[in-house]
């Protein structure tokens, strides 16, 4: 992926209002893979007894990361949308730790991209969550169909 396209991807992610609301940061992108992270925040807590971040916030990070990975694929889709996303929650994310999602396109057709993704907190090893998803591949208007 060339510099111009990388910059465009960063701008695209940072222009997403909800990505901004969650404080997402694009750490790496290219070749159908992306890495996106966000900080633990008090207002994202799902269980006030434990301070564990809500699964929904982790879902939002994983979904955005998958979308970014599709956009960075060499086949250059003009856009993408989630068809389905399944998330397995393996363990509670440690409160006050940054969450990092990594997603990759493991197969792409003319119309659909298939993805795998994981989310980790700052402890290496078992992910907090893993996801599989199917995303649409939008072709540029007037381009090859």
């Amino acid at each position: 992926m060339d510099e111009a396209k990388l910059k465009q991807a960063r701008m695209f992610i940072e222009a997403i209002p909800h990505a901004r609301a969650l404080g997402m940061r694009l750490d790496a992108i290219g070749g159908g893979a992306a890495e996106l992270s966000m900080e633990w925040r008090e207002d994202l807590v799902g269980d006030p007894r434990t301070g564990v971040i809500h699964g929904g916030a982790v879902s939002a990070l994983l979904d955005t990361c998958c979308g970014a990975a599709v956009m960075s694929h060499p086949e250059a889709p003009a856009g993408t949308a989630t068809i389905d996303l399944r998330i397995d929650y393996m363990r509670a994310a440690t409160p006050r730790q940054r969450i990092t999602a990594r997603a990759e396109v493991y197969h792409i057709t003319r119309t659909v991209a298939f993805l795998r993704a994981t989310a980790h907190d700052e402890e290496a090893g078992l992910p907090v969550a893993s996801a599989t998803g199917a995303f649409t591949v939008e072709r540029p208007k007037g381009g090859a169909q």
Binding site: A15, I16, P17, H18, A19, R20, A21, H54, G55, G56, A57, S59, A60, L61, L62, D63, T64, G67, G79, A81, T82, L85, I87
Partner: peptide, 24 residues
């Protein structure tokens, strides 16, 4: 709310927001 938007061009609610809403 504007902060729920995922695609400012259409505009559409973020897929992650939809997932979170359903999970809540």
């Amino acid at each position: 709310d504007d902060k729920l938007i995922g695609n400012p061009l259409i505009p559409a609610i973020h897929g992650g927001v939809t997932a979170a809403f359903l999970e809540v």
